[in-house]
Write a protein that binds this DNA or RNA. Structure first.
Lengths: 357, 357
DNA sequence: CTGAAAGCGCTTACAG
DNA sequence: CTGAAAGCGCTTACAG
């Protein structure tokens, strides 16, 4: 028919372009000055008569007034915003962290703005540049990143620019970049898991680790090996399998491990819950009951560990808390580089019963 | 040591509070007026000598200048922002949609701002109010919501306020709210799946559906039943099991179905891939090979459907496209209520081989 | 306690 | 093509 009603409707003398109520509108409706309206609307402002306050609040309510955050930001020079750079939101680990960020941001009266970086440092650089325009209170980087050394230092430069203009940078997940970090306790978690398994009586673990190398996988393996050595548990050669990071990868690796069963093998540790669940199926397919003859433990306690039977022993990495802590780090400024690491929680379920010795 | 270097350093005569370079800084550095600097920085502006442009661009580069988005927004009255309200980012369905939103927003030069609503309409109302302050170009609502009728109409009121002031509202996922919608094609997907199974020779399906009722589950079941009836396939009484929406739920339901095997049962349809994968395990545990005697199909093709052996037949709901389409709907205004629905894609894998008749 | 005025960092007619 | 000026919607000293 006619053009967009949202921008049209310019009948003579009736300038009716839709637009939000402004402070001026509220002030006029309440019959006071803009300054007074502004104060009355600010819960922290003291010098306001209660009469004034109610009149203004009334008018604001009637008009559905919401302050213009952009105007507030240009006036005060501060935004109530954190920018989050996330490699891939579909990754459950990232999603869990992001969930924590959103929750904590909401609780702190901040809004969280997101951009995807697709694991590529060059994307991150671009995104940091873009986000700088928003003058967010802080930027939180999560997920993994890969790129050339040149890219990496460009990223650091761009982030340095941002901190020089008063912004805060927080890394959620690993501590490879020189900023405040909320650490995902992979190493510590893996090692606590082995501690617990030792306590339960296990002595001879086999490992299923991802065939593609990553910092995450390395931390897990380092933690396992460190604790195993500490307890004098031996990981036999031939007791480490590499496989794709999927359920079927875990299945094949476990089948393989069981076939050429290392001498005293009494528990299989997988780098992810999905692989561990695959391993459980592999055990069943050769007539073993997970937990009965050989224990099984996963890692991350992300998806489905409690959905299987018996429940899968795993490690809760407190990812949502990592996300929340990132926001808190962003909020509490400091000169020094800080590092928060939560205690991971080993969750013992049916796949690792006490092993009498 | 001393106080925060970021806010300190107020040596007499050296006011060095860190803050971003402004247009004025750029103009001064380039020796031109702010107006000229502004134009030179705007790629769309025509009336700029190339000499002027390079000088300004140079200065901006040296200073690491990034325009203040808030100031731009208060000047122009427009933000390059979409606000996304998501019930729970940890839900893989939402994550997939959100991924599409982030991608498309990035491609369109928009930033995406998120808030969690925890499935509660009252949270959504609160969040809409908060987000209205940001004057986003559009709000995109995704995920499910529950709340009283009163709450629901309050939400509609708050959203109406927003549209009255020129904002756009888009629903990603279902079309229960009276706004533009990018639909998740559950009904259509379920019915296309049954079409395909019929073509493959299956005639007698059993259903595993979630025990908790939801719009999503209903759409799936409606689609299945509609297509089955259309093809004259009979779903016997006793051929519908209800179970928790987990792998184990699927396991138990399938075990049950198989135990009291309905007469001609030749394929089991589960409402989610997770349940279907559980069903596959149940089949194995009674000596059946998924796909050999009885077919299995999941739904959503979200997690792990191709990781199992044989691969699980499922339906790709194109959730990322739903997210991307939401952004496009937000960008292309219109007076009428619009509804975009993509064609879901049935992905046939090893669990449903051709069934010779 | 209240209001007039200045200013935040921009953009954009309006004159040259 | 360039610059001075006005204005966007706020907040906050500064006077009353």
């Amino acid at each position: 028919m006619t053009t967009d009603p949202a921008t049209d409707d310019r009948s003579p003398g009736v300038p009716n372009r839709p637009s939000a109520a402004t402070l001026r509108d509220v002030a006029e409706a309440a019959g006071v000055s803009k300054a007074s309206a502004s104060r009355a609307l600010d819960p922290a402002s003291q010098y306001v008569s209660s009469n004034m306050r109610t009149r203004v609040l009334d008018a604001a309510g009637r008009l559905g007034y919401r302050p213009n955050a952009s105007a507030q930001a240009t006036t005060t020079g501060a935004t109530a915003m954190v920018a989050v750079l996330v490699s891939d939101i579909r990754d459950p680990y990232n999603a869990e962290i992001v969930h924590g960020v959103i929750e904590q941001a909401g609780a702190s009266g901040l809004v969280a703005t997101f951009a995807g970086t697709d694991h590529a440092i060059d994307d991150e650089i671009r995104v940091v540049r873009m986000m700088r325009s928003l003058r967010p209170h802080a930027m939180i980087l999560t997920g993994t990143r890969s790129g050339s050394t040149v890219s990496r230092s460009s990223l650091e430069d761009e982030l340095a620019r941002y901190t020089h203009e008063g912004g805060r940078v927080v890394i959620a997940g690993d501590d490879e970049l020189p900023f405040d970090t909320a650490v995902v306790p992979r190493l510590r978690g893996a090692s606590a898991l082995v501690d617990e398994l030792f306590r339960l009586g296990y002595r001879s673990p086999a490992l299923i680790r991802p065939d593609r190398d990553s910092a995450a996988a390395r931390r897990w393996e380092d933690g396992v090996v460190e604790a195993a050595e500490r307890h004098g548990m031996r990981i036999e050669r031939g007791a480490v399998a590499r496989a794709p990071m999927t359920r079927d990868g875990g299945y094949d690796a476990a089948a393989d491990l069981i076939a050429r069963r290392p001498e005293h093998l009494d528990v299989i540790l997988a780098a992810t819950d999905a692989m561990a669940i695959g391993a459980m199926t592999a055990m069943r397919d050769v007539g073993l009951t997970p937990g009965a003859e050989i224990g099984v433990a996963g890692f991350d306690d992300a998806v489905g560990a409690e959905d299987v039977t018996p429940g899968l022993t795993s490690v809760d990495l407190a990812l949502a808390r990592v996300g929340a802590a990132s926001v808190e780090l962003a909020l509490t400024g400091s000169g020094d580089r800080r590092r928060i690491e939560f205690e991971p929680r080993v969750v013992v379920r049916g796949t690792t019963p006490v092993r009498p010795r």
